[in-house]
Simulated assay, not measured.
Amino acid sequence: MALRVFDPCPFHFADQDIRVDIAVITGERSLSGFQDVDGTGGGGIWLADFAGADFGDRNDAGRAETLFWRAVNGGMQGGATAVDVLFCDRLHQPVLDSVLVPHSDGTPFSDDTLYASSGAQCVVVAVVNGQILGNAATVLDIRLTSERALLAGERFSYVGASGWGWRAAETYAVEDRGGGVTRVTFSPPIRGGVAVGDSLDFDTIRCQMTRTSPASNALSDGAFSTATISFQEDMRPPVLP
């Protein structure tokens, strides 16, 4: 069954901090001032903090926003239930603003609706490192068609194999391998495996996470809401059928 989705965009958070947290340990400092630093924790996990939400009003739209916030909060059960957290950060992806476009002849669908243009399409062409079946891989060769060039620092999502659900990764090195192939190095490592032919999503970034902050839903004048919320990546082993 699909998880609930937490989309921070409708709540107009003033601040957000979405990052990969990698724990480190430090050794003794030498006489020359050098100090060993080693990463721990298997390549890090995602953390996300959102603060300064501004939503709600006395009209129907504001009422709906507040009720939606309450429903999402209730469904997370204080962090006992995982959700797919969307990263509201399209500006820093290799895509342009999401727009609705008609058919090539300028006409919409028969019901007068339009469809969203596709900003990026990506497929894995080689798994460069990692364990068996691509688990824990941190380097992939990909073929990416996008509206903006890949610079490093962009994020992508993928469906983790073996029941791991939606996961996210952040690139920190990009190398043109020629022939339309790009090598990306990223963290955290792939959860559950990746294979040649798998798709990576550079458009809608999401990650399976659990809530770590207490519930909050302060009301001002009985209608206007402020809120904060924090998450960490859900690293509980998947329950397989």
Rank of each mutant, 00 (worst) to 15 (best):
M1A: 10
M1I: 11
L3Y: 09
L3C: 05
F6I: 12
F6P: 09
F6E: 08
P8T: 08
P10R: 10
F11T: 07
F11A: 13
F13G: 05
D15Q: 14
D17E: 12
D17N: 14
I18D: 15
V20Q: 03
I22H: 06
I22Y: 03
A23I: 05
I25L: 13
G27S: 05
S30Q: 09
S32N: 11
S32L: 09
Q35T: 12
Q35Y: 00
G41E: 05
G41Q: 08
G42S: 04
G43L: 01
W46C: 00
A48V: 09
D49Q: 09
D49M: 09
F50S: 08
A51S: 14
D54P: 04
F55C: 02
D60G: 06
G62V: 07
A64K: 13
E65F: 00
T66N: 11
F68G: 14
F68W: 10
N73S: 15
N73P: 04
V83W: 00
F87Y: 08
C88S: 14
D89S: 10
H92Q: 11
P94I: 01
P94V: 00
S98Y: 08
L100F: 09
L100R: 08
V101A: 10
H103W: 12
S104M: 12
G106L: 12
P108K: 09
P108Q: 07
P108G: 08
F109V: 03
S110I: 10
T113P: 01
Y115T: 15
A116Y: 08
A116D: 10
S118H: 12
S118V: 15
G119P: 13
G119R: 05
A120L: 07
Q121V: 14
V123N: 06
V124N: 00
A126D: 12
V128P: 05
V128E: 06
G130L: 06
Q131F: 09
L133P: 11
G134P: 14
N135L: 10
L140N: 03
D141P: 09
I142N: 01
I142C: 02
T145S: 14
E147F: 10
A149F: 13
A149K: 11
L150P: 02
A152I: 04
G153M: 04
R155Y: 01
F156Y: 06
Y158F: 11
Y158Q: 07
V159Y: 09
G163K: 07
G163E: 02
W166D: 14
Y172K: 08
G179T: 02
G179C: 03
G180A: 02
R183C: 00
S187Y: 05
I190S: 03
G193H: 07
V194N: 04
V194D: 01
A195G: 07
A195F: 08
G197F: 01
L200S: 00
F202R: 03
T204R: 13
I205M: 04
R206K: 13
C207L: 02
C207S: 10
C207D: 06
M209F: 02
T210P: 04
T212S: 11
T212W: 06
S213M: 03
P214N: 03
S216H: 06
N217I: 10
A218D: 15
A218S: 13
A218M: 12
A218Y: 15
S220W: 08
G222F: 05
A223W: 10
S225Y: 02
S225E: 07
T226N: 11
T226Y: 02
A227W: 08
E233S: 05
D234S: 14
M235I: 15
R236I: 09
P237V: 06
P238R: 00
V239A: 15
L240G: 08
P241I: 06
